[in-house]
Design a protein around this nucleic acid. Sequence first.
DNA 1: CGGGATCCATACAGATACTG
DNA 2: CAGTATCTGTATGGATCCCG
Lengths: 141, 141
Amino acid sequence: MPKPDHPEVTRARRGDLFDPACPTRLLLDRVGSKWTTMLVLLLSKATGELRFTELKRGMTGVSQKMLAQTLRSLEQDGLLDRRVEATSPPRVYYKLTERGESLAVPLRALREWAEANMADIQEHSRAVADHSGGDHRGEMP
Amino acid sequence: MPKPDHPEVTRARRGDLFDPACPTRLLLDRVGSKWTTMLVLLLSKATGELRFTELKRGMTGVSQKMLAQTLRSLEQDGLLDRRVEATSPPRVYYKLTERGESLAVPLRALREWAEANMADIQEHSRAVADHSGGDHRGEMP
DNA sequence: CGGGATCCATACAGATACTG
DNA sequence: CAGTATCTGTATGGATCCCG
């Protein structure tokens, strides 16, 4: 998730930082947020850099807060480069770093899987829900 | 996420179901939960089926509630097969469906990326945090 | 053993308002 | 334009109890 500061610390306080050595956990904590993945995917498509507003426009539904938060998170992780033009009004350009681009590869594979399978999954899911929902269930009196 | 019923409905009520057609969103809503991914990965490694307790043991830190919830979610999506032996005590075996196995492929790619890059990322992240934290910041008076 | 139901803490995400 | 700050609702995930 695009947590601003130190998620691990928070978790550590809870006493359940079970296996911090597992890198997959760490990655999923970041990829888990849909915006992180969408952002990487969006930037990996772009030829050059993209500005804040362009990104916001490309990611329908994201709030400026979430976008900024995700951007800072990716920047801190070294997956994103931020370039500021100190004009007025200022212009800020974002682009993936090499590492960021490399992350886009498995992410694209995931997206392809999603595009190939999610329709079936939704249908399956709905069918199951209908079955158990409309079969023998008595609604509230 | 392993939402029991209909996450889309909840979002729809909020009025911001921006682009429900995007399957990547849908997938990430499920993969986003770290347990979903871990579960698929764990089961894809297993030769045959695994029982509830074995799964719980393999996923350090998961609560039985989250495990059960994730299992139900995957089952409803048709990614998981559930087989009950009506003995006493009962035994329940889980294994991935074909589609579930196919999901494991891109997920494994993601894990490999994580194992190759997360250490660097963490270091980078920590270095940046240290820099901005101890450099020029005046703490509260 | 394999869960379902319930209660509860919180951290994640949205809306809004303010700055340079 | 490009954010930061605050306030708050709510879904998520954990703990616990209980049942077959």
